[in-house]
Design a protein around this nucleic acid. Sequence first.
DNA 1: GGTCATAAAATGATTAGATCACTTTATGAC
DNA 2: GTCATAAAGTGATCTAATCATTTTATGACC
Lengths: 230, 230
Amino acid sequence: MTSSADFRRTLSSDLARAVVRMVNDNGLGPGDALDSVKVLAARFDVAVPTMREALRRLEGLGVLEFRHGSGIYVGANAGRRVLANPLSPRPNQGQLIELLEARRRIEPPIAALAAQVQDAVGLAWMEESLARARQQIAERDDALWLTNLDFHRAVAATGGNGVLAEVLDSIVLIHADAQREILRLHGDAVEDYDEHARLAAAVREGHPADAERAAAGHLEHVATIVRARS
Amino acid sequence: MTSSADFRRTLSSDLARAVVRMVNDNGLGPGDALDSVKVLAARFDVAVPTMREALRRLEGLGVLEFRHGSGIYVGANAGRRVLANPLSPRPNQGQLIELLEARRRIEPPIAALAAQVQDAVGLAWMEESLARARQQIAERDDALWLTNLDFHRAVAATGGNGVLAEVLDSIVLIHADAQREILRLHGDAVEDYDEHARLAAAVREGHPADAERAAAGHLEHVATIVRARS
DNA sequence: GGTCATAAAATGATTAGATCACTTTATGAC
DNA sequence: GTCATAAAGTGATCTAATCATTTTATGACC
């Protein structure tokens, strides 16, 4: 299926590619500013609207970011290889379960890898997000769900593999708002924390099999909650 | 990390969102045509260049597709949740190995799921791509590498989980050209085929553990080839 | 000398209309 | 019925102007 044979080269797509190369060659990273649209248009010898269209295309991917009155900046997805579609339509119950079953398959082996590799930055991030969760539970902070997502991403980061981390980032971000709503209504914050802590301990102490089991158990638990809701 | 707190609503982003909703509401799928830019601009009551920028943003994501002189069509990524960044820069040796190690972790459990679920469409796709590979090997067709990628996607589809299939689609497409080059120079087409056939047999006959082992072995083999190249 | 309101400059956002290029469809000759 | 041609539709690009937002420079005031 799908022959990627047709390379429809257009000015807009070539421009976008050139801008990305320019960003990489200049060593720019997320948050850094590009030249103004006018300057870019002049440099690439095209009219301003044409330049803007090429830049908008990159904005769609999250590779660039427009700030009215300020400038155009490198976005969070620059250099990233796997992305979550920010425009995927609102999921129904079945799609949510499908998503959780996908996580159930992917996250355990990633947790096992984390326990093997124990990347230092990832470990620190993991502990930090756990501590933050403790505090937010105590303060009944509504932002807890974000911290919990962060924990899963931190575990993936501890595996030391950028592609896997990006994959996990993506699937965790899919329908994040829908997942939040469910867990806010039906989840148990303390139980969640305990499961995370168990997983963290297995990773910290270097027990891949335990980490894998902990991740699997945790996700099955979450899936049960989602399945059970009316 | 990363508070997604700033919702910078802009006309362009609202327009893009509205277009996506329109596509979904009208039940349009990949390949279907949208109204012309002029008509869309009139409908949303904005000027043509503004409309074009919003559409370009969606083109960046692969949700839309522009065809000069013909029209604007729904793209292959519409409705998809996980995407491969089509603009990720060319990888170095280390990044290729990282990618293969990611696949080594993700694909085996997916293969196991495929052997459990045995989705009919996926199975047919799998057999079809195997048959095509046989023919292309006999004819020394250069497009064989595409068929091989297709086989991996077919296995994921056989698992019946859309999210997992999209994840696999994405990571298989990352740096696909770079992978092709390596395998063309250092790979053994017949050996590749045999490993695929073994995996297919395990899936077909419903042996998850065998499928998992076959997938793992195959990817380790590929990784060895990539590591070995000078 | 430091602080803060104001003015000026830079930058992106949007609009308008015109012309060019490509694709598809309708027309008509053969 | 087939095929070349013309016409219409559509996207691509350009020019030029005006509006809105942000940032920086200015200078009065304390």
